[in-house]
Simulated assay, not measured.
Amino acid sequence: MSRATPLRTDVAIIGGGIVGASAALALRRLGHGVVLLERDLCGSRSSGVNYGGVRRQGRLPVQLPLAQRAHQIWARLPELLGIDGEYRRTGHFKIARSAVDMAALEAYAELSRDFDLGLQLLSAAQVRERCDWLGGVAVGGSLCPDDGQANPRLVSPAFARAAARAGAQVLEHHPVHEVAHDGERFHLRAGPGLELQAPVLLNCAGAWAGALATRFGEPVPLTSGHPAMAVTEPLPAFLPWSLGVEGGGIYCRQVASGQLVLGGGHGQPLDDQRTRVTAPVLERLLQQAVALLPPVRHAQLIRTWSGTEGYLPDRQPVLGPSVTTPGLFHGFGFAGAGFQIGPAVGEVLAELVHHGHSRTPIDAFAITRFRSPVPAPQPTTSGVPR
């Protein structure tokens, strides 16, 4: 439906994943008018199809302040969202399969010591004693007892619903067709005829955020990744922790219903919007799962899926203000690890809008670390909705 006059708001947000939705909620709590634009359903992309790990362990020190801030937000999930999202602090255990892996876990424990993650290093004997469900591949490991897991299909959309209850206008099925800046305001065309104006724009478009950054003279080497995921039939409870493997590979967790959620390898993109898990990838995933967890040897898979995530070369996100365009802020490129820190990223973006700075250090995530910005488009009225 077309409008006689453009809709105006304080902040426009492109992208209804956990970052954009949590930013919308935080901005409303600070009193800002917000319109959130999502081309599909909120939380339906990487925020809703990820593994569901809520972990701090394994993150580089530059991300740990964000992760620690998020850790506190996750503890208040029912208060913020009205649901617990199946969030449980079950612990996250990272497995070492060699002496080299174990040395890396020991080095990480020392590197992260100042952040008080409570890491517990387990020897091979301790692993055998505590993990009779684990195959013989482990020579030790590292346990972060207060890390955990949640259901992304519940949590990510719930942030958008909470933002809407707080007064944000959450517009699903509103892809953005055009964005321009006249020197004072952003002008957007979206969905079936919406015209929107706002002095502030948040770029939270996930794997598709690079095009918007480029539009405003800040190209980044953003690429797409496609995680391969699967879930089994319900099994007797045996796995107390969310599991990862040092050096990469399979990851898994068991939910309250007994189903095992598995991830590892890469899906195959069908087009810009759709991905799938191929049979060879699934076969390798199952082989790793059986070697790691003998109790799943005869389990049946009931569903597989993939998605699209944004990756930058250093596996760190872009988070912070544009250096070419006043009022533009970026929050994207979380390399498949944005679910846990997403709520903190949303609060940081809200602080940047409201205060002009954040209490959480984010200098390491500046968009300028990739290349010198090219000149942004000059303010123009041509093609700008009125």
Score class of each variant (00 low, 15 high):
A96S: 10
P78R: 04
R113E: 11
A99D: 15
L77M: 11
I95A: 06
L105I: 03
S112G: 08
A75M: 07
L66I: 04
V62L: 08
L111G: 01
F115A: 02
Q68M: 09
Q57Y: 03
I83R: 04
P65E: 10
L111D: 08
P78W: 01
A70H: 06
L64P: 13
D101S: 15
W74L: 01
E106S: 09
A103N: 08
P78C: 01
R76K: 08
R69M: 08
P65Q: 14
R88M: 01
E79T: 09
I73Y: 06
A99H: 11
E86Q: 14
R88S: 09
F115S: 12
A67Y: 10
G85N: 05
R89Y: 05
R113W: 08
P65M: 14
L105W: 02
S112E: 06
D84E: 07
R69E: 14
R56W: 07
L105G: 00
G82H: 01
R89E: 00
A103G: 10
V62F: 11
L66K: 11
R59F: 13
A75V: 05
T90R: 13
A70T: 02
E79K: 08
G82S: 02
G91H: 02
L80D: 04
R76C: 11
S112D: 04
S98C: 05
V62A: 15
A67H: 09
T90H: 07
Y108D: 02
H71W: 13
Q63V: 12
V62G: 08
A67L: 06
L66P: 11
E106I: 07
K94R: 10
